[in-house]
């Protein structure tokens, strides 16, 4: 013990660690004092607040909080990039240290966030999973249960795929533009598209990742359209990529022969759905997703009910529904 201490003293950075520790203690002291009003404290841990989808989700949550200020205290934190797992883990550790009653989390990764969520639960915090579903098998192995409150992305994608399939005939060539390879919701959407493609007997000629990005998707769609002159449709796992597909097909002069399907129902795409440049998209009611999670967290805190998954609605958006 003493030997250890003297060895530690040799580290020139030690004063910084002490300072950092002090800061943490002071910081956590402050928040603890600030929240002694008896209301439950809920921390909403988001992915990138720079992303329109999460921004909408956050605004929905803030709106809900503004209307129910007497029910709970809300703290919203987000990470810089959608894939910055490390930063999200750090955020949750800080929240645990500062103390909270519930964490509603949109995990940046469906496995990597499980250990820190487990840590939070061990500290007596109610953890609710929204948006990106945590890996079931891994949760079981860790011996914990974290309820998922959110839409069935696969079902949503199937809805869009079925709507498209009704406009095509068996054997028609279609392509999928996937999300970031490890994202669970992206994988689910791809699976949903594939379900619809299989059911209608369409011919899936290519499936590539557009990394959720417009420019990247445009590059992929251009290349696929060139390689497959008979291409009839492109199914994109989000609307940003659908925007890239719109551009690519316009450049190729094939706007009229290739259908585009999106997902998320962002504002910029609604215009294109209305004028027929995008066939359909899927609304998973982004503004309500965090609210559902918060409401469920409050529910569990109040009733001490056993947590279970809750499915939220997904709806198909077409030119007719937007009228």
């Amino acid at each position: 013990m003493f030997a250890n201490r003297s060895r530690l003293n040799k580290y020139p950075l030690l004063p910084f660690f002490v300072a950092a520790l002090l800061l943490t203690v002071i910081a956590s002291g402050c928040t603890k004092r600030g929240s002694q009003d008896g209301k439950p404290r809920i921390a909403l841990v988001m992915k990138s607040l720079a992303n329109e989808f999460f921004k909408t989700m956050e605004e929905g949550a803030r709106g809900h909080h503004a209307e129910h200020k007497d029910l709970y205290n809300l703290k919203v934190v987000g990470i810089r990039n959608e894939e910055d797992v490390a930063q999200q883990v750090d955020l949750i550790e800080t929240i645990i240290a500062q103390g909270t009653d519930a964490i509603v989390i949109a995990p940046a990764d469906s496995e990597a966030l499980i250990p820190v969520c487990k840590k939070a639960m061990a500290a007596g915090i109610v953890v609710i999973n929204i948006d990106n579903k945590l890996d079931r098998a891994r949760l079981e192995r860790e011996g914990i249960q974290i309820p998922f409150v959110g839409p069935d992305n696969r079902k949503g994608a199937k809805l869009a795929g079925d709507y498209l399939a009704a406009k095509l005939k068996a054997g028609d060539e279609v392509a999928i533009i996937e999300g970031v390879p490890n994202a669970f919701n992206g994988i689910q959407r791809k699976a949903g598209f594939q379900d619809a493609i299989a059911a209608a007997g369409l011919n899936l000629v290519s499936s590539q990742s557009g990394n959720w990005e417009t420019a990247k998707a445009a590059e992929c769609v251009s290349a696929i359209a060139t390689e497959y002159p008979g291409l009839k449709a492109v199914l994109c796992a989000n609307d940003s990529m659908a925007l890239g597909a719109v551009d690519a097909l316009k450049t190729a002069g094939r706007t009229d022969t290739v259908y585009i399907v999106g997902f998320d129902n962002i504002e910029a795409v609604q215009k294109l759905v209305k004028n027929g440049k995008v066939l359909c998209t899927v609304d998973q009611h982004g503004d309500q997703l965090a609210v559902y999670g918060i409401e469920y967290a409050l529910d569990i805190l109040n009733t001490k009910a056993a947590p279970a998954d809750k499915e939220t609605p997904v709806d198909l958006v077409t030119a007719e529904t937007l009228k």
Binding site: K55, D239, L243, I266, E267, K271
Partner: peptide, 9 residues
């Protein structure tokens, strides 16, 4: 942009 995509094409 208020973190929103604006359609301007």
């Amino acid at each position: 942009t208020q973190s929103r995509t604006l359609y301007v094409s």
